[in-house]
Design a protein around this nucleic acid. Structure first.
Lengths: 147, 147
DNA sequence: CTTGACTCTAGAGTTAACTCTAGGGTTTAC
DNA sequence: GTAAACCCTAGAGTTAACTCTAGAGTCAAG
C-alpha cells in the first residue's frame, strides 16, 4: 500500500541523518531505491531494517566496508556463516588485543598519577622540584615503546 | 662544538620522518631551530630529546595538542604538576571507560561466534537455515545501543 | 664545476565516516 | 498560486596525524 517513504521520513525513523543515508547508498550499503517522478527516493520498510542493521553492526565495531559485505551475504541468503564466523573471529581478536594494550596503558598512567600525587603531597609549601612525570617523559630512556 | 644537525640526521636519530619533524614544528611542538645561511634547519640535541618525549607521550595516548602543552610546561620549568595530574586523570578515565566498552563488545562478539559455530556444527550436510548472527543483526530489536 | 644527496616551501593527499553547502527543483497545504 | 517544507546533485569540509609532491635551492666530494 505505502508507495514508499521519502528520505527525511526514513532518516527520522531510523535516527540517522539524510546525508548519512545517501552516503550509505553511494557506498553500496543500501540498494538504490526507486524514484518518484520528480526524482525523490522512495524507500520501503526493508531499508529501515537495513539502517538498523548498519547501526547495530557498527556498534559491534564493524567498518562500513565489512557491513557492506555482511549485508550482501544476508541479501543473497547464501550460507555465509563461514564468512561471518571469520569476520567475528578477526574482530574478536582485534578487540582483545586492543584491550590488552589499553590495560598496559592504564597501568602506566596510573603509575604516573601516583607519582604526581606523591610529589604534590611532598611539596606542600616546599620548593617544587619539578614534575616527576614530565621528567620521566623527558629522560630519553631509550625504551622502545611499541608504536 | 657541533654547530647543529640537519633535519635528515635528526630524523634518522629519532626514528621519525623528516615531514613529521616539520609538521611538529608547525604545530608548535618543536621550537623553530636556527637556520644555516642556505636556510637549512640546524637542530641541537635537545630537539632529539623532545622528539623522544613526543613519541613516548604518544604511546601513552596523548594527542599532539596535549603533548604540546606538556612540552611547554616542561620548558617553562613551572610547577605544572597539578596540570599534569589533571591530564593524567582524564586520560586514565578515558582509557578505563574504553576498556569497559571493549569488554562489553568482546562479550557480544564471543556470543555471536559461539552461535555461528553451533550453526555450522548443526548443519553438517543438512540444509542451512541461515546465519544466526546475520539474523540477529537484521532483527530490528529496537535495542538502543549507545554509540 | 658538476653530480648527487640533501633541504626548502607550500600545499595536496591519506583514512573513516560522515556533515554540510550551494544552487537548484518538487510537493503539498492553504 | 504561492509559500513552506522537502528533496536533488556534486562536491567541499571535518578530524588526527601525518605523508607525499613539485619545483626549486644548497652543500660536499671529486
Amino acid at each position: 500500500m505505502s508507495a514508499g517513504v521519502r528520505i527525511g521520513q526514513l532518516a527520522r525513523n531510523a535516527g540517522v541523518g539524510i546525508h548519512a543515508i545517501r552516503f550509505y547508498e553511494r557506498r553500496g550499503l543500501l540498494r538504490r531505491p526507486p524514484r518518484s517522478e520528480g526524482g525523490y527516493r522512495l524507500f520501503d520498510p526493508d531499508d529501515a531494517r537495513d539502517l538498523k542493521f548498519i547501526r547495530k553492526a557498527q556498534s559491534l565495531g564493524f567498518s562500513l566496508a565489512e557491513i557492506r559485505e555482511l549485508l550482501i551475504l544476508e541479501r543473497t541468503s547464501a550460507p555465509g556463516c563461514v564468512h561471518v564466523r571469520d569476520l567475528l573471529r578477526r574482530k574478536l581478536s582485534d578487540v582483545r588485543s586492543k584491550i590488552e594494550e589499553l590495560k598496559a596503558l592504564e597501568a602506566q598512567l596510573a603509575s604516573g598519577l601516583r607519582k604526581c600525587q606523591r610529589e604534590l603531597n611532598r611539596s606542600r609549601g616546599q620548593p617544587e622540584k619539578g614534575c616527576p612525570v614530565l621528567k620521566e617523559l623527558a629522560d630519553a630512556k631509550e625504551s622502545e615503546d611499541s608504536k
